[in-house]
């Protein structure tokens, strides 16, 4: 069989634990997840590790390997020197359940808070037609496998846990960008993107883009375009003046915490009237 490799794995639960050294067999062509499974089968039967597809498509096996956020099933052993000690730790940003398994429910809570797709009700089911060029941009974002490595690496919450309530993270700011670019969506999430989801805290340092296993250009194609849209809504004096002159009233959506279908209720008393204002651009 193959050669022995040195692994150092974080073992513990409820936050308390330690790095434990192991020597495990490894064969040519294997990935880190394979070696962890062999460790589990031969020496540490109680090692907790989450996985599912082994093909980089389910987003379950997110972990940190030699300090870098990665998918265990997509990290080849050939990346390391034969005598190198490979350190494997759980994602640092999320509470640990046990060993390499973290509780990522933060992400599901954030996902639920985003006002969902809001089509124009006057257009009947199946009537809306859209062109490929109109959806092309956001199709890139649909490649996301929800591994949450971007959420994990983002220093806004990784290094400042206290920001977690106020910050949605790159994955969900990208979701807002996707909806804002959607040709059939009529809600305006620009103000809440800044005020409720913390877009202003992102300082575009691109770590999310660096770790994304789907190579989505999160910063360049979602976060910066969203920042530019927010500038138009909140910080651009010319746009503000234009709004005053044309008496345009913005129908900003409201964040609806804990409600899975927050159909873009307007900030004012009246409901957003889809199909008006900027949405016809």
């Amino acid at each position: 069989m193959g050669n022995k490799v040195k692994l150092r794995v974080w073992r513990g639960d409820a936050g308390k634990g330690d790095l434990v050294d192991y020597e495990v067999e490894s064969n040519e062509g294997e990935v880190v997840l394979d070696v962890l499974h062999r460790l589990q089968a031969t020496q540490a039967g109680d090692l907790a590790v989450r996985w599912n597809c082994k093909a980089g498509k389910c987003g379950s096996c997110s972990m940190e390997i030699n300090g870098r956020p990665r998918l265990g099933c997509m990290t080849r052993m050939s990346l390391f020197e034969p005598d190198e000690t490979i350190t494997v730790t759980p994602m640092r940003t999320f509470p640990v359940i046990r060993d390499l398994v973290t509780d990522v429910s933060f992400n599901f809570e954030k996902a639920r808070q985003i006002p969902s797709f809001t089509p124009d009700p006057s257009i009947g089911l199946g009537e809306f037609r859209m062109q490929q060029v109109d959806v092309q941009r956001s199709q890139e974002f649909r490649k996301c496998i929800e591994c949450f490595l971007c959420q994990n690496v983002c220093h806004v919450i990784r290094d400042h846990e206290e920001n977690m309530p106020a910050y949605a993270g790159p994955r969900f700011l990208m979701r807002i960008a996707e909806l804002e670019m959607h040709p059939a969506d009529t809600a305006d999430r620009r103000e809440i993107a800044q005020d409720d989801f913390g877009l202003g805290m992102c300082n575009i340092t691109k770590c999310c883009t660096e770790v994304c296993p789907e190579n989505i250009h999160i910063t360049d194609n979602a976060l910066i375009p969203l920042k530019e849209r927010v500038v138009s809504r909140k910080y651009d004096p010319l746009v503000w003046l234009g709004d005053k002159i044309t008496r345009r009233v913005h129908q900003d959506t409201q964040k609806v915490p804990g409600k899975s279908s927050g159909h873009g209720a307007a900030r004012s008393d009246s409901r957003a009237k889809p199909g008006r204002g900027r949405h016809q651009r």
Partner: peptide, 22 residues
């Protein structure tokens, strides 16, 4: 802020580009 990805930054507080001057 941050020096590199997954390297802890030295600041105790962080508000990003939400306040003056940023």
């Amino acid at each position: 802020s941050p020096g590199a990805c997954a390297v802890r930054e030295p600041h105790a507080k962080y508000t990003g580009e939400t306040r003056f001057p940023l």
